[in-house]
Design a protein around this nucleic acid. Structure first.
Lengths: 403, 403
DNA sequence: AGACAGATTTAGATCGATCTAATTTTTCGT
DNA sequence: ACGAAAAATTAGATCGATCTAAATCTGTCT
């Protein structure tokens, strides 16, 4: 409308006049400042500032007068200006390796939960797994004066790259993925515990010969998972079954690994898979061999991807609620901002087991196709619904609850 | 490295005293400023500022000296300080009604694509469909001095609430959902065109008696969709088939509506559903009646939710790539920021048809269970993969392409 | 050499808040 | 009523950049 019109001689400093009682959309013709409030309320700028910061120094009477003036003039706090002087910005940066993964959007939601409660705001950016882009946005965040950063590092992020992006000097919490040699705070899922959980579950169902499929040799994520797998077996004094890594973590390499494994003699009766995607491939191979997952061979995965509950048979798996991871990450970052000198902290969020049909224990494994509802061949989304009411426990193994 | 150490006597300028030498965590021992650079390079602060802004006024020689100084001292631009003086912040706010919906995370990614290219950064916040929270975060964004806002309004957002949150004075683009009476820019999917598209497709397959199921009477989204539905039928001079609204947009009301419809005489041979969820319910009802969706009756949906491709039969549907909507929204906002006085613009992003089995046209409709791959009962995720290579066309019906 | 235009550079005010170090006002004991 | 202590308020510097207007430094032309 009259956006460019301004309001004639704007801002006479001592006479804010009617800012815009009639103006439908008063267009920031001289955004109202502390000086305006001060003049309107007949006090000094400093006093208004004290009111803004809820200082107990101000007399109740004056405070009300100033509050009224702010309401009258439609004041909007200018945090940038405040920040310039005071340092902190109540702003953090959230740098994600990939926005569109559902996992990360829940993670983001968890972060926002905490930030909103603490009246922080977060910048969000996507690095799309690109190290150069990551560096660029990290610097950009700092230009904007964030108080700290939550970083889900792009693949192949090197510690020195983070140092170079000045993250060494800024409170920074890594989430979901670690960066070797960068001794920062970390929050992530506990894959070892999860693997232990599913393996225990299989053992509880009577399995004694359990194999493991998937994972790239010699890298941390695999050894972490194997640790949990082995731990459960060892506890029950069972032999560690065959461990078949695959070069790539997709359906087809899961398929190939399982096919090869079942071509040998005496195959396992249960398979723990590196993740859900690999598990899907594994089940494919089993079916091809005439074996029914969930009846003839138990299969479990990890991550609880969207398809897991829709698959036939629905996949037993485990996951760490990413929203909880997000919340923990945000809380940790705020603690770190509060006190930058404390030693780095690691928060490992415990997983949650999701029992479905592929391990043969949930309900009538044979009657997969017929539920109580009139849904012969339709994949009902009962799984996600069933999970929701069960609030994930936000307990972290280490680190205080904070607030 | 030596980031925390400071660098000895760094630029005492006016002798601000040691900020906090004893302080447990000396907080950024005097961040490097323009003054430091100026002193180090032997020029004035103003000249350094010119270099920062890539002014052509500075001699090449000096520019290099200054660039060198910045590199030496590890300077990080302080945009907040710059903003305070110059007004614009190169920051926008993204206010979402719900972060975790996959649709919105793609939307967010689209926004980030554009922002990153223009070296903007976006704040993100979730309103969780809560009007009070929405108002709070809108104000908070402005406190932080955003140049504009992309808002996916929470349900039941009233125009006056947005005015009250001062959004009337700030560049603001609504996305995905309109707010009646708030004459702002808008970017969203073209449901009318999508409905026309699927209806045309059904007609092309030979259907002459086509019904419509779902949608709440008397609200805009339904009438928009029906417009497209009717338009296609009228173009081919076909009778408008039965239109069955449902009170709620879920699976079971789709089920009920279809059951009732097929209890009558002479039911349609094809059904256009309000959205995918309704379509799932409809297919359930058909199957229950002994009719096979995709063979006996064609069914199409809208949205392409995750289950659509995994369903048996896989659902023919249409969707508007939310990432494209995000990109258009961001571009429009930047244009608006550039020139706040132009009249409001509406950008309607065209939809894309996704042909699967439920309309009986894609591949051998009978052989649904057996694909070329050895996957008898396994829901392969081939659908989303098949879609990806086809880059969505970012053409908008109205509004110039911008950049 | 002096004038003058154009190219560079700079001093100082400024953005809108906070912070420090007062100053002014009020309260209260004696 | 006086002075001291406590309470309330404030002037002015400050954060780190931008911006304006002026100053300085070229080089060219007469």
């Amino acid at each position: 409308m009259d956006l460019r019109k301004g309001k004639g001689a704007s801002a006479p400093a001592r006479a804010p006049g009617e800012t815009a009682p009639g103006g439908a959309a008063l267009p920031l013709a001289h955004r109202v400042t502390l000086n305006d409030i001060a003049a309107h309320a007949g006090v000094s700028r400093a006093t208004v500032s004290l009111v803004l910061r809820k200082s107990p120094l101000v007399k109740e009477d004056t405070r009300q007068r100033i509050d009224q003036a702010m309401a009258d003039l439609g004041y909007v706090y200018n945090r940038r200006a405040a920040n310039l002087r005071s340092g902190a910005s109540r702003t953090i940066g959230l740098v994600l390796c990939e926005i569109i993964t559902p996992n990360y959007s829940q993670f983001t939601a968890g972060i926002d939960d905490v930030l909103d409660a603490e009246s922080y705001v977060g910048f969000i950016t996507n690095t799309a797994e690109d190290a150069a882009r990551q560096k660029r946005v990290l610097v950009r965040m700092q230009e904007h004066g964030v108080d700290g950063i939550v970083l889900v590092p792009a693949e192949e992020t090197r510690a020195d790259a983070l140092e170079e992006a000045h993250c060494g000097g800024l409170p920074c919490v890594l989430a979901q993925r670690r960066v070797e040699g960068f001794p920062a705070d970390y929050v992530g899922p506990d894959y070892a515990a999860g693997m232990e959980l599913v393996t225990e579950h299989l053992i509880g169902l009577g399995h004694r010969h359990i194999g493991f499929i998937g994972g790239v040799r010699r890298i941390a994520p695999l050894s972490e998972r194997l640790r949990g797998f082995r731990k459960a077996l060892r506890r029950h004094k069972l032999k560690i079954g065959p461990i078949v890594p695959c070069p790539v973590l997709d359906r087809s390499s899961g398929y190939a690994a399982a096919r090869d494994l079942f071509a040998e003699e005496n195959p396992p009766t249960a398979l723990v898979c590196y993740n859900d995607i690999v598990a899907f491939g594994v089940m494919l191979a089993l079916i091809e061999r005439g074996l029914e997952p969930g009846r003839d061979v138990a299969v479990v995965g990890c991550d609880d991807v969207a398809e897991a509950g829709l698959h036939r048979p629905a996949l037993t798996t485990f996951t760490t609620d990413p929203r909880v991871v997000g919340r923990e990450a945000a809380k940790l970052l705020l603690r770190r901002i509060e006190n930058p000198s404390r030693p780095p902290e690691q928060i490992i969020v415990p997983p949650r087991l999701i029992i479905r049909q592929s391990c043969g224990s949930a309900g009538p494994a044979r009657a997969l196709a017929h539920t109580t509802r009139p849904a012969p061949a339709v994949a009902a989304t009962e799984a996600p619904k069933a999970r929701r009411p069960r609030r994930p426990s936000p307990h972290a193994l280490k680190g205080s609850a904070g607030t």
